[in-house]
């Protein structure tokens, strides 16, 4: 089943249009990557999907239901979650408080989900009483993803997965995400600048440029495509 179907989405800030007729879909259980240079509209796209930015036109269907006019809290209830760019943590609150806030729309299952998140990220359990602001970059990214998992999403969106992280940490995160998909069948939409990583962990990928989808396909095919290798992987 199509979990997410976006058609002809247009959006921007003030008078400046950022997204131009973007269409994209995510199947159930699929990991889809979006990559492209800075300013290509990737983060704006995720903001429209979670509902903190209103689209100018086009439709967003989640589980066959139109969601483009719903406020963020309704979308989170339906099963969309976002681990935002720059992690957007509540820095003055503890790790556990951050996680509990992630369970805002699923308070009754907060305990259960806390254990589930701690099982994926044991270091968060060790640091549960510490302030989110005192964590390392990698741990903060884990917390951001863990917090998004607390609402039991069907679609987990991650903005800039590897930003500012050491390669070893990125590898671990990628492994954990793959594990989460295998064990729970959660679909993911991952925005990533590091193209080799994006294509490595995803089933399919979309290439954004200046607010448009300029290329798309199965990740393994894109990896072999000359245009992609030249532009994004610096392989001649």
């Amino acid at each position: 089943m199509r979990l997410l179907e976006v058609s002809d989405l247009e959006a921007g800030y003030g008078d400046v249009q950022v997204l131009r007729s973007v269409s994209l879909h995510v199947e159930e259980g699929e990991i889809v990557a979006i990559f492209g240079s800075n300013g290509s509209g990737k983060s704006t796209f995720l903001k429209v999907l979670i509902g903190t930015l209103k689209p100018w036109g086009g439709t967003v269907k989640f589980m066959e239901r139109h969601v483009e006019d719903l406020p963020p809290e309704e979308r989170v209830k339906l099963g969309i979650a976002l681990a935002a760019e720059g992690r957007k943590l509540f820095l003055g609150m503890t790790v556990e408080e951050n996680l509990l806030l992630g369970a805002w729309v699923k308070k009754e299952k907060a305990k259960e989900n806390l254990e589930r998140v701690y099982s994926y990220f044991p270091e968060l359990y060790e640091k549960r009483r510490e302030l989110a602001g005192d964590l390392s970059g990698g741990q903060q990214q884990m917390l951001s993803i863990g917090r998004a998992l607390m609402s039991e999403p069907k679609l987990l969106m991650i903005d800039e997965l590897s930003l500012g992280l050491a390669p070893a940490v990125v590898d671990r995160l990628a492994n954990i995400l793959t594990r989460i998909r295998e064990e729970e069948g959660i679909s993911m939409l991952i925005v990533e600048q590091e193209v080799s990583l994006a294509l490595d962990i995803s089933d399919r990928a979309y290439v954004f440029d200046l607010g448009e989808v300029v290329d798309e396909g199965r990740s393994e095919d894109l990896l072999r495509r000359d245009s992609i290798r030249k532009t994004y992987l610096s392989v001649l």
Partner: peptide
């Protein structure tokens, strides 16, 4: 209270709180 958690979340980062589903 959980009510207070929501307020603190708004204090720390309002957009993030919204993203968590806090009205």
């Amino acid at each position: 209270s959980t009510f207070g958690y929501a307020l603190k979340a708004i204090r720390e980062d309002e957009t993030a709180a919204e993203t968590m589903g806090v009205n």
